[in-house]
Design a protein around this nucleic acid. Structure first.
Lengths: 328, 328
DNA sequence: ATGAAAGCGCTAACAA
DNA sequence: TTGTTAGCGCTTTCAT
């Protein structure tokens, strides 16, 4: 590989000192003719200042770290897209890592980011608080997206208004006459389950704890949870799925057990995905602004250089399609 | 932000020179007691060597760049996941960028990577050859994934065996009795369309060019193309969609026009996605090994330090579900 | 086995 | 306005 063109090469070729080149390129003062010559030579040599040199010298690295549980999940894909869009607009590179919702992976990844000199990170945390102590102690500016890590309320977060979303959905179902409503939750969605219970309670419907179940992170586990729920409690008439993979599992399990949606079972899913519309019937969903969540989180972590930022809660939208009907 | 712990701090605290610390930490020779002391102090101070310093000194940056058209698309999400997994296993950070299949964005992003000192990149190229001249000239080792840039056959690529996949699919449809088969393509999928034409020709079916249409990158455009096709040529009995967004558009447009699948229209989609199974009827697909493509591409770009690597073609699989029937 | 010192590419302080 | 120089954190000769 050809040796990289350095500032020194440009300086020599232009017959000036390196400082002058540096100044010209970063918009400092220089006589018009010098400026022009330097610029010409730099373009000629296709010179690109090395971020390595600059960052080392300035003891600060631009760039932001991005940690998500799973890029493959449409929701996190959209969150990532938002972060990437904002970073791009700001000219910042983003180093990305996948945690698999595993605290240990998360810790490793944080270590890697630290090593790279990254000092700002947007993360959808696994939920475990463990990895984040060392992170902030090392001076990382972090903003959470979509969830918090337990006990780290000091770290600003950009969240969907899950409580509002779930409440609207549950009210809708109750309005349709449903009483035995189940909740199928996943990793790190305590908020949603809590909102579910609260709303039911507020509406005077007794919460049946047997109807609140949790799958683990995998598709198989979600399917098993859904299927088990349907078989164990054939009396339930409606289900709220806490995320798109859980919704997918619910649709599959319902079909497998010959439950007709919405006749036998009303279904609402948290998260709007393209396939919700392709489903038969199309799925009624609580749509969180995934892309926005990412964008805002990135904005926050970029703006808040040093000082502490306040978190944000973004509204969700209930999109009524065809998967809910009156209680049979 | 607290000043970072440097090698110098460790050296002082351990009462040795910085060179010794460096040696110990990179597995060089040192007396057992020195090694132990240094290690203890390093752990104590929570010392992390700065990748910046190291990379600058060694004039080479680890890390790999990853450029995809759209993280939000399930296919590229899986490709990215593969790259991330491989990089992680190798302990390399990855800097990610989204091109939107736009050559100019691609160029900018390449510039950014160069500036960051990245010297290896995995990319799903927009197709334009323009951005890649400067890239290789600057010394980047690049491996393409899923597609090539036109005219850059010198750059190794990890591809799905699109020809084989499309051929199998078309043969399947022809075997079912179909003759008026359409192809709905998207950006950068010339290969697939070509394979489509070739297979039809080889089977003695005249290729009707009106049945080969292309949507642009957006969902709306894909929908318009599909809808236009169905309305313009109600005589077609089968369709091959060149990607998941196109398949989605086809399903939507067919439903809108009250075409029943598979009775009125047989449908095969390139790319297997979770929702293919949720569809009614479940979609028959040509499944490319998206995750593998990413993983192998990353492997290639990591292994081939300097020397040129050869590309790979990975097999696809025809997964027969319920969206194809005999010609009515 | 260990330390001193040079230097990677850059910017910022200081001199001229 | 410009050039000289120190030094960011690290690795790597070269002495010791």
């Amino acid at each position: 590989m050809r040796a990289r063109t350095t500032i020194k090469d440009v300086a020599e070729a232009a017959g000036v000192g390196v400082a002058t080149v540096s100044r010209v390129l970063s918009g400092g003062s220089a006589s018009p003719q010098t400026r022009e010559r330097v610029l010409a030579v730099a373009a000629q040599l296709d010179y690109r200042p090395s971020a390595l040199g600059r960052n080392l010298r300035q003891r600060r690295t631009g760039g932001i770290g991005l940690l998500v549980p799973d890029v493959t999940d449409s929701f996190y894909g959209r969150v990532a897209d938002g972060v990437l869009a904002c970073a791009r607009a700001a000219g910042e590179p983003v180093i990305m890592g996948v945690t698999g919702d595993d605290a240990e992976s998360e810790s490793e990844l944080i270590g890697m980011l630290l090593e790279q000199g990254v000092e700002r990170v947007v993360a959808v945390p696994s939920g475990d608080h463990e990895p984040w102590g060392p992170a902030v102690r090392a001076g990382l500016t972090v903003v959470f997206a979509d969830r918090r890590a337990t006990g780290r309320d000091d770290i600003p977060a950009v969240l969907a208004d899950e409580r509002g979303g779930v409440r609207t959905a549950v009210e809708y179902l109750v309005g349709l006459g449903h009483r035995r409503i189940a909740y199928l939750g996943g990793h790190g969605q305590g908020q949603r389950a809590a909102a579910f219970r609260d709303t039911l309670g507020a509406l005077g419907v007794t919460v049946d704890e047997e109807l609140v179940v949790f799958g683990r992170a995998t598709r198989d586990s979600a399917y098993a949870a859904a299927s088990g729920l349907f078989q164990h409690r054939p009396d339930l008439t409606a289900l709220v799925a806490g995320g798109n993979q859980l919704g997918e599992a619910a649709v599959l399990a319902a079909r497998e057990l010959d439950l007709r949606v919405p006749r036998d079972l009303s279904l609402i899913m948290f998260d709007d995905v393209p396939w919700a519309e392709l489903c038969a019937p199309p799925l009624t969903v609580i749509a969180p602004p995934a892309q926005d969540i990412g964008y805002r989180a990135a904005e926050l972590v970029l703006r808040s250089a040093g000082r502490r930022a306040r978190g944000v809660s973004l509204p969700t939208e209930l999109i009524i399609r065809g998967s809910c009907g009156p209680r049979r």
